[in-house]
Amino acid sequence: MMITEIDKNTALVLIDLQKGIAKDTVHPVKDVLAKAAILANAFRLAGLPVVIVHVNPVGADWAKARVEKPSAPQNTVLQTIAKVAMPITGFTDIVPEIIIKPSDILIEKKTWNAFFNTSLHEQLQKLKVTGIVLGGISTSVGVEGTARAASELGYNISFASDATSDKILEAYNHSMTNIFPRIGEIGTTQDIISHLPVGK
């Protein structure tokens, strides 16, 4: 795992660090959130964009498809219940450890991929962003789903290994070992910060 370079115009993209998802991870979630917060502060200090993404899957087309292990309500009754329950439980609320600043870009997605049917790519292109640093939960779901799309769109991708986690260790290891090295570079929060461009 090694970061060789961070593009001059790079954005930090934090995936699904929300109350309904950022829990029950294979790494201590408080450590993952602390690293993500450190990254966000470092990017802001460097004058680089910070993107905070959350997911609200209720009513999404993929949730209507047949699957063996549904992860979102599939019928209208359950979807109606979820729409009422989510605001009460704070499912989509960003965790308090991640402070949202007025300069941050906020994205709501419906799928694993933060680029699909959102304004993320358009907003990054307006800022002439060519690289992204990814962190978040879960590694094998939202982070990997977004990374695959980012790769297809031609972004240089860096993964913050200690600012991401999963609910399943094997899934985390598979993404980190078999998928991410083929589409980007992997490093720790400190490694990424040490490569941030100076005097942007």
Rank of each mutant, 00 (worst) to 15 (best):
I52F: 07
K64P: 00
A171H: 13
Q79L: 02
T146F: 07
I100S: 01
A63Q: 07
I88C: 03
T92A: 13
V143A: 13
H27M: 13
H121Q: 13
G47P: 07
I193Y: 11
G154I: 03
F91W: 12
K101E: 10
E152N: 14
T189Y: 10
G154R: 11
V26E: 12
P70C: 06
I99H: 01
G90D: 01
G184E: 07
P57L: 05
S165V: 02
H27G: 00
I15C: 15
T189S: 14
T177Y: 09
H174R: 13
F180S: 05
L12N: 09
I3E: 05
I100C: 03
N56D: 15
D16V: 08
A46G: 11
I94S: 00
Q18T: 15
N75L: 06
L169E: 14
Q190D: 15
T80Y: 08
L78V: 00
S151K: 05
D162I: 02
M1F: 06
M86S: 01
I3Y: 09
L33I: 02
L134H: 08
A46H: 12
S158H: 05
V58S: 12
E152V: 08
D191H: 09
L45C: 04
I186F: 08
V29K: 13
Q18Y: 11
I99E: 04
I88S: 04
G131M: 10
I105N: 03
F91R: 12
K69Y: 14
A72W: 08
D162A: 09
V13D: 06
D24Y: 09
I186L: 14
G59F: 06
T76G: 10
